[in-house]
Design a protein around this nucleic acid. Structure first.
Lengths: 214, 214
DNA sequence: GTCTATAGAAGGATAGAC
DNA sequence: GTCTATCCTTCTATAGAC
């Protein structure tokens, strides 16, 4: 069942080309011919290795999505305070996205096109277990900040939104920012610390205006 | 140059059907046949009224995008304090999106596919004029909160991210939230006040940890 | 203005030689 | 394992009758 070296090589080249094309164009917009061209081979080989466009796409999507989500988990296990974890998350996560700015759009577009694919993607990343895990580690901080089981989903989705959305909307943001004399990459670099400070400020606010809906 | 009543009627029906299909499937995934079916007419009529798929799509996109962005402007002119405007924005803007949850994904997908289209879309909505406008109205509050020309883009993009991203990622969020026993619509309803409070808390934080990069 | 029928092109997939 | 050639379906777009 060992795959010869050369096969693996070609398969890898195809996979890489397909990844780039699918990220740029999405499943519907991508063309097998373009993937073949970028891989420097011809269409027939695509089908030889991956059977169909759908299977090729699935392979690419699962790899990308898996990588993307797997970056979330380690952060949660670091030996850091909750506040430090927030800073850590924005710094590391946005750095990854900075090097792969097309990923958010690719994922969002696809799950919108085919919501069923989510089932496989989610398993092991439910908010409930993250909540239990963090609550155990940072109970004291959570109490201080007024983080409860009820508002935790709001908090964590806010963190993700602040980090991911600028990349999903990069095409808009970069144009708008230029009008103000600010380049997108600089904006992102600043944002790593801004967003972390923003979230922590909200949590720390002395007046405890941090929403606690019941 | 007056269009007969019946023409306008058919054209409107086509336009409406096209809007729904394009929002669901995107430009690449949409099929003229499906638009015709939903409009209850046949394909040839689509071309009679709109010449080509591309033109039909452009018409739909421009209308949708125009509506979407035009909702931002009025908020800025209301006779409210800056803090009240933030609450107002989240309440009204998220209510609109709640009734049209597919819009963010549609816009994001298309500007990613065709960034050039942004040029037309942006004119009149640059951050700089928004900044000047708000700075004139709320100079005192801005000083108190430490809002500067430099961090204003970070602030405003944060507000938009907190509001829009949950809808763009609805397919993911709704599944994840269900695991925690929370329905998406409830989450959104709570979010109108949570996000507003979150932003205002960050601004008000007594320790003035609100980032001010220079 | 609206329909049927069809042209014409493009794209996914396969057959078969090497 | 890789190529050329080609099949077949799908889709946009148009011609032409009513």
């Amino acid at each position: 069942m060992q795959i010869p070296e050369k096969d693996k090589h070609t398969e890898g080249i195809i996979f890489e080309a397909a990844t780039r094309v699918f990220i740029e164009k999405g499943m519907d917009g991508a063309r097998m011919q373009e993937i073949a061209d970028r891989a420097g081979i011809n269409k027939a080989l695509l089908h030889y290795y991956f059977r169909s466009k759908e299977r090729l796409f699935s392979a690419v999507f699962e790899k990308i999505a898996g990588q993307m989500f797997s970056k979330f988990a380690p952060v949660m296990d670091e030996n850091l305070s909750f506040e430090e974890k927030i800073r850590f998350f924005f710094r590391e996560h946005m750095e990854i996205l900075k090097n792969n700015p097309g990923l958010p759009g690719f994922i969002l577009n696809e799950i919108n096109r085919n919501p069923d694919r989510m089932a496989n993607l989610i398993k092991g990343y439910d908010v409930k277990s993250i909540w239990l895990h963090l609550q155990k580690l940072h109970g004291a901080e959570f109490e201080k900040y007024g983080i409860t089981k009820e508002n935790f989903p709001q908090l964590i989705t806010s963190v993700v939104s602040l980090s991911v959305f600028p990349f999903a909307a990069k095409a808009i943001f970069s144009v708008i920012l230029e009008n103000m004399g600010c380049h997108f990459d600089d904006y992102i670099e600043q944002r790593k610390t801004f967003a972390a400070g923003f979230v922590i400020s909200a949590l720390q606010s002395g007046n405890h205006d941090m929403p606690r809906y019941s």
